[in-house]
């Protein structure tokens, strides 16, 4: 177990620099975007202010106030682009976290497979690292939201601002943040469980490829396809007429069961491959 923590620590420290880069990029793009949009808004206000509306208060009365959520949707591109990059980066890292060990002339995989510890520790360390990184990114997003909101208050005159929003309401008003920070436990299980399952299934495909190379690619693609098919099977069945008799929470339970089964099977296959079939 001790060695598992060391492995996890190693995974984290190896990603650290890239991770900080993702943080910095998110902060800079979102902060910069919000500043830009806020300033642009203030400029528009100033341009539109004429004899009829000579103060911000008068302007607000005529044109309405602006909220942080309004600015966020105005700054959509700047706000979502770094998130998309982070998601893309993590998606890529799901592969890189494995393939990196085989890359270069040093081939760290030799050493990793020769560690006097269960090989599944290596797997679990990589899986935990990915999940930790994702949670960390979400936490960072939550952390900088108030900061971004502070940027908004500092640029937009008080008279032009609507009532102050709490972080919770900002999140709930945002179509995408709603998914990142689910309101209910069911949603949390759906989004994050789904994400974890995705990573687990991808890991299985990667290990299949690493164990059987060319044939493994085919096996991996088939495996991922089968997993997806299984996951959407209940919907496919349900969408047919006459069969539309399942309640949403029944569907949820069925999906959850399928997901857990796929997950367990993937883990079993992965551990088997790591112990018996993986090749340097």
């Amino acid at each position: 177990m001790n060695r598992f923590w060391k492995l996890l620590h190693m995974e984290v420290s190896r990603f650290w620099k890239l991770y900080i880069t993702l943080f910095a990029m998110t902060l800079l793009m979102q902060g910069g975007g919000i500043l830009y949009v806020c300033n642009r808004y203030m400029q528009t206000v100033k341009d539109k202010m004429g004899p009829a509306a000579s103060t911000y208060a008068q302007y607000a009365e005529e044109h309405g106030v602006v909220t942080f959520s309004d600015i966020l949707s105005e700054a959509q591109l700047y706000f979502l682009a770094p998130i998309a990059l982070c998601i893309g980066g993590m998606g890529l890292y799901v592969f890189l976290i494995w393939y990196r060990e085989w890359m270069g002339k040093n081939m760290f995989i030799y050493r990793l497979l020769m560690l006097p510890t269960e090989r599944r520790h290596l797997y679990v360390a990589k899986l935990s690292a990915i999940l930790l990184f994702v949670i960390g990114l979400v936490a960072f997003q939550l952390l900088i939201l108030p900061l971004e909101s502070a940027l908004f208050t500092s640029v937009i005159d008080q008279a032009l601002r609507g009532s102050t929003e709490s972080v919770t309401s900002i999140i709930q008003n945002h179509a995408f943040l709603q998914i990142l920070v689910p309101r209910t436990f069911t949603e949390f299980v759906m989004y994050y469980g789904g994400g974890a399952l995705f990573v687990i299934v991808m890991f299985t495909a990667i290990l299949l490829e690493r164990s059987y190379r060319l044939k493994g690619i085919a096996a991996g693609v088939i495996y991922v396809g089968a997993a997806v098919l299984l996951m959407i099977a209940p919907m496919l069945i349900m969408n047919r007429d006459m069969n539309d008799y399942l309640y949403p929470n029944e569907i949820f339970i069925i999906e959850l069961t399928i997901a857990i089964l796929i997950g367990m099977m993937s883990l079993a296959i992965s551990f088997f491959l790591m112990n018996k079939k993986l090749s340097v």
Partner: peptide, 29 residues
């Protein structure tokens, strides 16, 4: 792995690791 050591024809440690860190890694595991 505590009874047999294998020395491949290439080093198998990440290239950006220092000599000291690689020794620490071995000591840790």
């Amino acid at each position: 792995y505590e009874h047999v050591a294998y020395i491949p024809d290439h080093i198998s440690m990440p290239p950006n690791m220092t000599v000291g860190a690689s020794m620490q890694f071995m000591k840790d595991f």
